[in-house]
Structure formats: structure tokens, C-alpha cells
Computed example of a mutant assay.
Amino acid sequence: MYPKINDNLFIQEASSDASETEVEYRSRIAEVEDEAFLIEIPMQESNGRLKKLHIGDELSVYFMTEGGIKNYFYTHVLGFKEDVIRMVRVHKPAKDEILKIQRRSFLRVSAELELAARTAAGIRFLVRTEDISGGGTSFMTDISVPLEMGDHLQCWILLPYRNGSSEHAQFEAEVVRMKKLENGRSLAMLKFVNILDGERQKIIRYCFERQFDFRNR
């Protein structure tokens, strides 16, 4: 499903500058062409600053549809059109390149990410995740890291993005399941119980990029 004329778009630049990738801009679709969307100059809502774009700039975009569904896609700037207002022409993705994420469910992807954790008893350990979503993550563990259902962990995870930049996301998680495996290890499954929205958005962005890469292999 494509966005329609007058639909709002929420945009982040896929920049190597980590501080710039965290800024979200808002725009609106003014016209739709066969191969492109014409959008208003994106504006940062907190301060009214307009985003200066250049041909070739890569953008991560989402728009909302009924039921609170976020529809994500990647695009890039093709050019500009001078009319009553200046508009930005961006590439129109194929329909199967638009990923839908339900409001109360999160896209889960396989991912080997570096996760540092600390238990309530102060035990610190470093693991690699098995998968991750905006709602939780899982990792392999053994008897050297004694974990039980209900344990709370303070966690820091390293998220590498497509543009070469990396960010840490911090959260508190609860162990909701321990699954024993034949090799003597266990799979610890966590859900996020205390996470700032900005930290969750970092993880959702990573999941979206990861899924986008899977689809294009």
C-alpha cells in the first residue's frame, strides 16, 4: 500500500553522522508520479528547522495507516520541482519494499549483536544475541551466567546500521523464558520492561534495515 497525497511522512536521513540520523523530520506528499513522490521540504517539528536535501541523499521513511500501523521504506532524492512551493522528488519504492509494523507487535529479525548485561546482583557478562525486535531479544547462555525466569537485567546493545554508523541502545529487560538445549546451554528470552522511546526506535530502525537487506538478497 502506497501513501496518498496529503499523507504525512516521517523522515530520517541515512547519514554517517550519528547525531543527524537521530533527528526526525515531518513532510507531506504533494504529488504522486509513476516513479516518484513529490514531497514538501521536511521540517523538524521541535524547532521548525527545514532539512536541506541534495540529490542522492538516502532517507528512511515511515507513514501511518489505519490501526496505528507504521509502514517503513527506504528512498533517495531524485531532484526538485519549483512550484508555488519547492518540492523534493524522491524515488517511489516497489510495493513489496514497504514493511508494515503493527502498533502492538514488533518485527523480529535474526541478529548476532553484542549485548552487555548486568544482573541485579551486579554480575556482568557479554553475549551475542540470537534475534531482536522492538519488544525484546534472546541470547545463548551457560551455567557461568546463572539466570532464572523473572530476573531483571540492565542491558546495552550495539546496533550497526547500513550507512556504516553504530549506536548503543540501553534498556532494562526481564527474563521471560529459559529454554534448555541439547548442548547443555540455554536460550534466554527477554522482554523490554523499561526502555525510552528513543532507545526503542534505534532498535526498530535496525530491525527494519535488517529485514530490508534480507528482502533484497
Results as ranks from 00 to 15, higher is better:
K70M: 01
Q211M: 09
L159F: 07
A117H: 02
D151L: 03
A169W: 02
P93N: 10
D83G: 10
Y74A: 05
N216C: 00
V90P: 04
V32W: 06
R210V: 11
G48L: 15
H168V: 04
E114T: 05
F212M: 01
Y206K: 09
Y62P: 04
E58F: 00
D34Y: 03
D96T: 14
K191C: 12
Y72N: 11
S19H: 02
D142E: 10
R26T: 13
L9W: 05
L159G: 07
G122Y: 06
G184H: 08
L99I: 15
T137W: 07
I101Q: 11
I195C: 12
I98S: 13
A30L: 08
W156D: 07
K70F: 07
E35M: 14
E58Y: 02
N163A: 01
L9E: 04
C207Y: 07
R128M: 08
I55T: 15
S166N: 08
M189A: 11
G48E: 08
S15V: 11
V90G: 06
S15P: 05
L181Q: 01
D213A: 15
E148M: 01
I41K: 07
E182L: 13
I204P: 00
I157S: 08
Y161T: 06
P3S: 05
Q211C: 00
N8G: 08
L59P: 09
F63H: 00
E40R: 09
M64I: 14
V23G: 04
S110Q: 15
S15E: 11
S133A: 01
K4A: 13
D83L: 05
S138D: 02
F106P: 07
T75Q: 09
M189I: 15
E114H: 12
A36I: 03
N216Q: 11
E13P: 09
I98Y: 05
I98R: 00
R210K: 14
E40H: 12
T119S: 13
G135N: 02
D131G: 08
F10M: 10
G68E: 05
Y2I: 03
I204S: 06
G56Q: 06
F208Q: 01
T119N: 09
D7F: 06
A117V: 02
E97M: 11
Q102G: 02
R177I: 06
R217V: 13
T129K: 05
R26V: 11
R49K: 13
F80G: 08
R205K: 15
D131W: 06
K191L: 12
F125Y: 14
A36M: 12
Q170W: 10
I157E: 05
T119M: 02
G184T: 13
E172S: 12
H152T: 15
A36Y: 02
Y74Q: 13
